[in-house]
Structure formats: C-alpha cells, structure tokens
Amino acid sequence: MTTIGLFNYWIVFVLMMSGLYIVIVSTNLIKKIIGLNIFQTSVFILYISIGKVSGGTAPILVDGITLYSNPLPHVLILTAIVVGVATTALGLAIVVRIHSAFNSIDEEEIYTTSD
C-alpha cells in the first residue's frame, strides 16, 4: 500500500477553516452552529487519522492478526460524537429561545432590535 502521507491532515485543516469561516462570516445563528459542527467533525477526522496504522485492521481481536489500528482515538471520538450532538442540541435550544425573544435568528437584526 502506498503511503497516505500528510494528505489527511491537510484536508482536516481545509474543513477546520471552512467551519471557522462560516462561524465568522455568517450572521445566521443556525448556520453558525452548522459551521461549528463542521469544525468538530474535522477534529474527529484528525484524531482518527492519528490512530490509523498502515496495514492494520479495525481493533477487534481476531486470531491470526497482529496489527491493529490504535483504539484509543476511536474511544475518545466515539464519546465526543454523542456529546457533540447533545451540546449542539443545547445550542439550538438557545437559538430557539433567542428567536422567541427577538423574533429573529440573524445577529445583525438582533443587534438593531436590542438597541
């Protein structure tokens, strides 16, 4: 197998910066949360890429196989995904409350309303 090199990391950085860009540029709060989620998945891929071992298999012990990928990042990211959806839901709930208070989920409109 040819080496993957550093390509995974570069794509991770592209995704990370797309997420950050959405968070900075978009004034819509739901779009911002989508951007944060993209940032989050890029970190997931970074961890899983670090744990990859060339020629290894999924870390489920089978007779006759000695090389496994690193299970520790899998554990960390597995829990992080589920925690991530729970915290995303919390963020969306705050957006819903902002909408019922200001009748808008656009940052700039909220600023002008609250003046």
Partner: peptide, 8 residues
C-alpha cells in the same frame, strides 16, 4: 470506515 474506526 476506511480509517479502520468502525465503531466511530
């Protein structure tokens, strides 16, 4: 899946 993290 490609990166061997089936559980994830």
């Amino acid at each position: 899946v490609v990166l061997d993290a089936v559980d994830v």
